[in-house]
């Protein structure tokens, strides 16, 4: 049965491996230069191979979805569409073995391809990641480490199960795309922040990356905080509160910053960044606010990067296994 599953999947596997080799050649040819720039002029790194950086990021990001769509969705759906499942299920192999072997073989190859791709890009982008010190942020967390293995397993299992349940390839492909994107977003913004309770950090307003003021159409002004840059940590939120934990009221802001409240229109009226002050009026009002208020930042520290990688990989792998179990059940109890 393994040989049959392999024979059916051979072409796709070869295409995937050829793709990996091409990526390896491109990255291998350009990687040493990145290291050279890192040693000589690290500030220039982000501008070196800009297009390639973007392309590599997109590739790693979409690889699980692509593999789920093209390896997962047709895996069983194609057999159901062409009727060959009737040929397969009447050979001397139980359909349970048939579905288990197919899922295991193709699932592992898929996971290996996506994970391998991520490892290669991680090797290549290592100098950039060291300089940026931003691996925990939502944009980067899913690209490196072990999570791509889990994502690919999940996307594959989702595609294969959808194909089995719908019995048609195209709807299964669409489901895979939508389901994968939805799952990634949901986990990134709703679940990942809660793997462990975030740490809190109180600090004076001057330590923030910046402050933002916004005025609504009716007049009142609100103030927002831009979290400080903690290397390789994931800042979740930043808020401005007084010692009692209350945010500044609109009335208070109007009083300490009359220049803001008096102006016409609505929207963002001023943003400060650490560095040269954009305007004297705003600086004065910030100084006034800072006497009474401070900032509270919640974040996941850099030390939790690998535990979080493990949790998230396990989460996606478990869901993938559950989908595979559903498929085995479906093949044995629903398609009869």
């Amino acid at each position: 049965m393994i040989r049959l599953a392999w024979r059916q999947f051979r072409t796709e596997a070869v295409v995937a491996v050829v793709g990996l080799v091409v990526v390896a050649i491109v990255l291998g040819a350009t990687g040493p230069h990145l290291v050279h720039v890192f040693r000589t002029a690290p500030s220039q790194l982000t501008n070196t191979y800009r297009t390639l950086q973007g392309a590599a990021a997109v590739l790693v990001l979409v690889a699980p979805a692509i593999l789920g769509i093209f390896f997962g969705a047709p895996l069983v759906a194609r057999e159901l569409e062409t009727g060959t499942f009737r040929l397969a299920w009447t050979q001397s192999v139980s359909r349970r073995s048939w579905v288990v072997v197919k899922f295991a073989l193709v699932g592992l190859v898929t996971s290996g391809v996506a994970g391998g791709l991520s490892l290669m890009v991680a090797w290549w982008a290592n100098p950039i990641n060291i300089v940026n010190a931003d691996r925990f942020s939502p944009a980067n967390f899913g690209m490196f480490g072990v999570v791509p293995f889990g994502y690919a397993l999940f996307a594959f299992a989702l595609g294969a199960t959808a194909g089995l349940v719908f019995g048609r390839t195209l709807p299964a492909m669409a489901t895979t795309l939508v389901g994968y994107v939805a799952a990634r977003l949901a986990v990134t913004y709703w679940i990942r922040p809660h793997f462990e309770a975030p740490l809190r950090l109180s600090l004076p307003l001057s330590k923030l990356s910046g402050l933002g003021f916004t005025r609504s159409p009716s007049g009142p002004v609100t103030i927002g905080a831009i979290p400080p840059n903690i290397p390789n940590a994931w800042a979740l939120s930043a808020s401005i509160v007084d010692d009692a934990g209350h945010a500044p009221t609109a009335r208070y802001l109007a009083r300490v910053c009359p220049t803001l409240a008096g102006g016409p229109g609505s929207g963002a009226v001023g943003v400060t960044r650490s560095g040269p002050a954009p305007g004297g009026g705003i600086q004065t009002c910030i100084a006034r606010i800072a006497t009474k208020f401070h900032a509270v930042v919640t974040y996941q520290p850099a030390s939790r990067y690998w535990p979080f990688q493990a949790y998230e990989t396990a989460l996606f792998a478990v869901v993938a296994l559950a989908l595979a179990a559903l498929s085995v059940w479906w093949v044995r109890h629903r398609l009869v």
Binding site: M1, R3, L4, R7, Q8, T11, T82, G83, T84, R86, L87, A88, T90, Q91, S92, V93
Partner: peptide
């Protein structure tokens, strides 16, 4: 039990020889 389904489904992209080999693998 040997079975030939209606419209005799076969793997279109596989050769006759492949079919004979796969028959050996799963029987």
């Amino acid at each position: 039990v040997g079975f030939v389904a209606q419209n005799t489904p076969l793997y279109a992209s596989m050769t006759v020889g492949d079919h004979l080999r796969l028959g050996g693998w799963v029987n």
